[in-house]
Simulated scan of single mutants.
Amino acid sequence: MKLIFAGTPEFAAQALQAIIAAGHEVALVLTQPDRPAGRGMTLQPSAVKKVALEHGIEVFQPLTLRDAEAQAKIAAFGAEVMVVAAYGLILPQVVLDMPRFGCINIHGSLLPRWRGAAPIQRALLAGDAETGVCIMQMEAGLDTGPVLLRRAFSIEAVDTTGTLHDRLAALGAGLVVEVLGKLPLPAESQPAEGVTYAHKIEKVEALVDWSRSATELDRHIRAFNPFPGAQALFGGQTVKIWQATPVAGQGEIGVILSVDRHSIVIACGEGALAVSELQKAGGKRLPVQQFLAGHPLKVGERFDRPE
Results as ranks from 00 to 15, higher is better:
residue 273 L to F: 06
residue 99 P to T: 00
residue 66 R to Q: 12
residue 296 P to V: 11
residue 78 G to F: 10
residue 99 P to Y: 04
residue 173 A to W: 01
residue 94 V to Q: 14
residue 180 L to Q: 04
residue 69 E to R: 15
residue 152 A to N: 03
residue 212 R to I: 09
residue 166 D to E: 14
residue 50 K to R: 15
residue 252 E to Y: 08
residue 33 P to D: 12
residue 273 L to G: 00
residue 51 V to F: 00
residue 105 N to M: 07
residue 292 L to N: 05
residue 100 R to K: 15
residue 211 S to R: 14
residue 202 E to M: 13
residue 292 L to A: 07
residue 205 E to G: 13
residue 116 G to P: 00
residue 146 P to V: 00
residue 91 L to W: 06
residue 214 A to C: 09
residue 228 P to R: 12
residue 271 G to I: 01
residue 297 L to C: 06
residue 221 I to R: 01
residue 144 T to G: 08
residue 38 G to E: 13
residue 179 V to S: 01
residue 243 Q to K: 14
residue 175 L to R: 02
residue 262 H to P: 09
residue 270 E to G: 10
residue 26 V to A: 01
residue 213 S to V: 05
residue 253 I to D: 03
residue 148 L to G: 01
residue 27 A to V: 10
residue 22 A to L: 04
residue 226 P to V: 15
residue 187 A to Y: 03
residue 4 I to C: 06
residue 263 S to Q: 14
residue 295 H to L: 11
residue 302 R to F: 02
residue 181 G to N: 15
residue 18 A to F: 03
residue 175 L to K: 01
residue 303 F to V: 06
residue 53 L to W: 12
residue 92 P to D: 10
residue 38 G to F: 13
residue 287 P to Q: 13
residue 95 V to K: 01
residue 62 P to C: 03
residue 274 A to W: 03
residue 212 R to G: 09
residue 268 C to R: 01
residue 16 L to I: 04
